[in-house]
């Protein structure tokens, strides 16, 4: 366990491992996304209540799922970083944050598009929508703090702590928003009774969720490689690497 952590905790080794993982994960991610998208958009029968419009669920639900999943991944990395001081974990947080922000934006955006024909409005202040919006703002705040601190070492610790503060607060915010919503009023536009999903409709959804998770790992691996190169730019192995690449491409 310790040896494993220390081995992969070294930026140099992780740089090459990340490259390998990217190559292994890229193809499965593409396959799952293809299965999910083609299955969901073309083959699944249309919904009785919502017609063709329901197909946006194959983008919307997985993005919302990812937005939360990525935040929890960041929280786990923050604990690993603060407890064992493993630099790669901090870089993983840096690499994940913009992806998470994009996915929560995508969830809100597709939700609005879905809401217009189904609920008759782009936006309602429903508990779930509101907490998704707050999650989006948390991501943005995190990115803002990270870009404001110029000292990398300090910035890593501060942003790891901010992620943890966010994790403690997210459930409180979520439940207070639910409580606020139920206190004030029921949803003005009643949501359609959600019929239990048919298996043929669910499988493409699973495909999308797995595919997008793998996609997140791929992109995060690419971003973390850039991050490692940026931070370790002065070290010997990066110099060697650059020299080798330059020789290969005859620059």
């Amino acid at each position: 366990m310790w040896q494993f952590l220390h081995k992969y905790g070294s930026p140099k080794i992780f740089y090459f491992t990340a490259g390998r993982w990217f190559r292994w994960l890229a193809l499965p991610s593409l396959c799952f996304l293809l299965i999910g998208l083609v299955g969901g958009l073309a083959f699944v029968p249309e919904d009785y209540y919502q017609g063709e419009g329901f197909r946006i669920i194959y983008i919307h639900a997985p993005s919302a799922f990812l937005a939360m999943g990525i935040y929890s991944m960041m929280a786990i990395s923050a604990v690993i970083f603060l407890v064992w001081r493993i630099k790669v974990a901090a870089m993983w947080i840096c690499a994940s944050a913009p992806i998470g922000a994009w996915f929560s934006f995508l969830a809100l955006f597709t939700g609005a598009i879905w809401g217009k024909p189904m609920w008759g409005t782009w936006w309602i202040w429903d508990a779930r929508l509101t907490s998704a919006l707050i999650l989006f703002f948390l991501y943005l705040g995190f990115i803002a703090l990270q870009s404001a601190i110029t000292d990398r070492q300090v910035g890593d610790k501060a942003s790891a702590i901010l992620v943890l503060i966010g994790v403690v607060n997210l459930p409180i915010i979520h439940y207070s928003v639910i409580w606020w919503n139920t206190l004030h009023q029921g949803p003005t536009i009643s949501r359609l009774q959600k019929p239990a999903m048919d298996p043929s409709m669910v499988y493409p959804l699973y495909g999308m969720i797995i595919g997008l998770f793998l996609f997140y790992f791929c992109i995060a691996m690419l971003r973390i490689r850039c991050e490692i190169l940026k931070r370790e730019g002065r070290s010997r192995w990066v110099e060697d690497l650059v020299r080798e690449k330059m020789a290969r491409y005859r620059l």
Binding site: F137, L138, G141, A144, L145, L162, I165, N169, I172, I173
Partner: peptide, 9 residues
């Protein structure tokens, strides 16, 4: 930006 989301509850 950082603090207002936490003020919500």
């Amino acid at each position: 930006i950082l603090v207002i989301p936490f003020f919500i509850p």
